[in-house]
Design a protein around this nucleic acid. Sequence first.
DNA 1: CTGAAAGCGCTAACAC
DNA 2: GTGTTAGCGCTTTCAG
Lengths: 347, 347
Amino acid sequence: MRIEATTIKDIAHALGLSKSTVSRALRDSYEISDMTKQLVLGYAKTINYTPNPIAVSLKARKSKSIGVVVPEIADSFFSQVINGIESVANEKGYTVMITQSLETEEGEINNISFLALRSVDGCLASVSEETNDFSHFCDLHKKGLPIVFFDRIVECVQSHAVTVENVQAAYEGTAHLLKNNYRKIAFIANAPNLYITTKRFEGYLKALREYGVPYDENMINYCPHGGRYYEEVESVLKSLLSKQHRPDAIFLSTDKLTTSFLRCCKNLGLKIPEDFALVGFSNLDITDLMQPSLTVLRQPAFEMGRRAAMLLIKAIETKRTDIDCENECLPAQLIIGDSSKARCLAS
Amino acid sequence: MRIEATTIKDIAHALGLSKSTVSRALRDSYEISDMTKQLVLGYAKTINYTPNPIAVSLKARKSKSIGVVVPEIADSFFSQVINGIESVANEKGYTVMITQSLETEEGEINNISFLALRSVDGCLASVSEETNDFSHFCDLHKKGLPIVFFDRIVECVQSHAVTVENVQAAYEGTAHLLKNNYRKIAFIANAPNLYITTKRFEGYLKALREYGVPYDENMINYCPHGGRYYEEVESVLKSLLSKQHRPDAIFLSTDKLTTSFLRCCKNLGLKIPEDFALVGFSNLDITDLMQPSLTVLRQPAFEMGRRAAMLLIKAIETKRTDIDCENECLPAQLIIGDSSKARCLAS
DNA sequence: CTGAAAGCGCTAACAC
DNA sequence: GTGTTAGCGCTTTCAG
């Protein structure tokens, strides 16, 4: 700010002390007499002194702040995670800098180097779907920057991670459809390279296997842009409709896909669950108000943010980035709505 | 970062020049020979030099960054605004620091002083509903920090502002209900002290007046917590139900109120629009998928963010914070759904 | 055209 | 206990 704040120099000057004495008194150093401390602290309070964080950062090469890289802020899941992160960061006196990659690798590279340059003490990241080369994370991590990945983690970087029980969640969602007598279940996910995609696919397969339903690769669909473009989802839907063995149910791997797909169905005049039963991941808090109410897998987003931030701060404060990476894995919740209503077999 | 980056000193050393020459060469100063510039620039590129923004900030007392204070990130409207802000900030080479007040005055004070201390060059803000004393904004603004308010602006601070045409929007929403033969229209808003509340109320009144419908103050309800607590909305709904002249339609002043109210209705077994017709502000992008599809007033959130950021950057770069405050006012859009379907008068 | 030196606000040896 | 000094990385007078 061009705004002139009070500095240590001001205090030193006013009290006839040296800058270092003031500095030490402010940080309650053992070498300063109680009297002087009282004096300095008292005066500092009256003139409303706050240390200049920029100067501190420059000196200390750290900033008591953590950086966050998410694909997109305007997303129910990520914004809830951010709230979780902020809640522990605030408790622990850390500042949070939020950046979004907008799902591009370039954005992600810019973000992480921006943050590193800004002396964040550590980073929380969920990778963009476009990213295949993770060296921007690797390099910084190797140089000692603590990084905790969440949700969309990168397995090749040996670091802490917080995820949801993806396999189990997808398994439960798919099994729920199977129990409700759906048999031809299509799987729609975003970019196939994402950790969450492969894990959720695994859970889907597991359920099929367990229920003795043969795997049909025609049922597997990817939207590399995660359903951000309407056309992308629409073309998947149309291709499903044109298949000889048209699916009777759909498993959707992410938030945006779930709602985009529902919109497509509506536009094409399809009925849910009559034409397709739907189960999808979603962290929107209004899936119960939709038409029909959606059966969703909800991630404990806020808690994930909290855990990730706690892991990160622990890593920062113990400086042991190298070894014993912790992986926390939280359960998702299956919330049953009308979009997956049991099918009557009588027909 | 503990991460050691290359500095001007490294370049100077490697090239046998002085730090100042390198610094000047990098900023393309006229006093440096072309040859030296080539040399420095070339070398800087090979070692991948980036100026340390912290050092620059300390020196320059500005940071090529702008701060954002919103009540809450996990909100469709605000997250869209943030995207708009980022889009112009990135274009213009500014970094965005996002903070949330979580609707508390204390959080807001912390945020804005945090940002000022971090040498942001200017701020974008939408005030918390709890805030009544705006001196934290006033003080910084007087000291020369450019501030642009958006959506929830504060009129007593003489500064730039971007809003939606609140009066007109609320008027259109209410008029739409009146046209559809609803006559007893309740108004539900959040904190009555907010700019958006008073303006939207004004529009509501205007419509009533124009359609010759008498104003009934029993129809006016405030949720000081903006519908973040379910009980708050439920108690409003129950009080409406208990009234002698029960309303036949509801105008909802914000996003969260709109969806919370719908949820309450559902829980109490009420039918929309039969029991109540609904029109509300909302920037959720799935109001068309709800049951029933909602008639909403949608704000051009992304564009508001863009405009606000452009105003701010202009203010920063021209340093004229004092005079000629610009107020931009964008139209909202009425999107008609089933929640306000015309009532048959036959009954 | 280039260099030396001071200083942004703060901390931390190293004196006394 | 307290002061002096140097330095984090950078810009910017002021000298040459």
